[in-house]
Design a protein around this nucleic acid. Structure first.
Lengths: 228, 228
DNA sequence: CGCGCGGTTGATCAACCTCAACCCGCGTGG
DNA sequence: CCACGCGGGTTGAGGTTGATCAACCGCGCG
């Protein structure tokens, strides 16, 4: 695999040192509620404990680009100084721990392993961001979708050939991959028509031919490949 | 500006605490020499002290995507665990300090301000990566180029209406922005023809109409705007 | 002199976008 | 109960942007 670690933020396995963020108050967010907006003062870091969050940037001409889908373990708010550079919104029920930035330095000095955990986690997020750059910048629509679906499948705990969750709308996928939602819809239909995929509902997905999707993500030209 | 902090990694101002990486041996690299390759074991972190570095990912089908241009202050090697997820190459003469990953934990525990500096720096790099995602995913070719030129100009120490350095080839710009080099060449010619830009040499650039380039980067439709 | 590298320019083409119609499920209110 | 609107999704026709392929330029160098 070229895009070595996938385009999505992932859980960092619990280290022996324990919870990466024992500090801070727990906050809860309902689906589709904003967590903060681009331009807001950055008062807290948020360490996600459960649920899915999307982070996005909106250009002044109204175009939006999702820069990350994040789940448990990811840290929100490290990518900037005083104002948030992106907006964040809960996609599912979300719980997160808040660390006031005013106390970040103190807390890290007192507990160096927290600092190390944050560092490892944000490093991971940087890796995911770079993988997304590669996907968005260098892949075709079909390749992007294949890469994305494989990432989502790997991330989920569902077994091979079991349905996994796609907790985002078509438009979100499009804004994540730098496509239009019509293109996403079309290509998903194509994949199903060709028998590589089955979507029992709008937000659930089974990969039937992972081999083919992987070849596609890696750049094989499957234009001649027949259905099923 | 929407892409708040630009698409490029920037120098972090020296904090009172002093050099972000007083540890480690200095290493030097000549222009166009590789620093490490995608897949290599990650033995060291590198903190750039001077010069420009490009980090890129190559897909198995040979496509390449530059994921970052980095200069002094940036940290290389935090975005992954055991193997490097991208390749790095010196674009100019480069000096950098190497921190063995085996000693990272120990060093950070002994010197929490180093950990905090690394954290702030990698956060910045994450911000730059997200800005690049937004540019590559949501902007047209002209917008990408305008955004890029403004970022480079801001980054350089050159005064307004003075020439600044473009230390990369056309093809590098293209691989950074997710375009083909022909497109970059064409659009740069367009910009000059229209009088927004002057390039005294292949690797130097003067912005003549920053206002227009900014409007363009922000999504204004200048298709009707006449030359000069 | 000839060659290779980096860049520019032109002609053609296709991937993806745009705009629009339409479907379906659902909640609301007459 | 049904009509209606709305949000989200799918599908189709046609247009545009940027990719592709190819020729050509200028320069440095063996």
């Amino acid at each position: 695999m070229c895009i070595a670690q996938g385009t999505l933020n992932r859980v960092v396995p619990r280290s022996g040192a324990g919870d990466p963020a024992p500090e801070g108050a727990v906050r809860r967010f309902a689906p589709h509620t904003p967590i903060f907006f681009q331009g807001d003062l950055r008062t807290h870091l948020l360490v996600i404990e459960s649920g899915w969050v999307k982070s996005y940037v909106t250009l002044v001409d109204g175009q939006r680009q999702i820069v990350a889908f994040s789940n448990a373990g990811s840290v929100l708010g490290l990518e900037t100084d005083v104002h948030h550079a992106s907006s964040c919104e809960a996609m599912t029920d979300v719980t997160a721990r808040a660390i006031p930035v005013s106390r970040l330095e103190e807390v890290c000095r007192r507990d160096p392993s927290l600092a190390l955990n944050l560092l490892r986690q944000v490093g991971r997020q940087l890796g995911a961001a770079q993988a997304l750059i590669a996907s968005v910048g260098a892949q075709s629509a079909e390749q992007k979708l294949a890469t994305f679906l494989i990432s989502m499948a790997d991330l989920s705990s569902a077994a091979e050939d079991e349905a996994f969750d796609l907790p985002m709308r078509r438009g979100d996928v499009a804004e994540f991959l730098g496509l239009r939602l019509e293109t996403v819809s079309r290509k998903l239909s194509d994949f199903q028509r060709r028998g590589w995929l089955h979507m029992p509902s709008l937000y659930a997905c089974v990969i039937l031919r992972r081999d083919i999707l992987e070849d596609l993500a890696d750049g094989a030209d499957l234009s001649l490949r027949k259905a099923s």
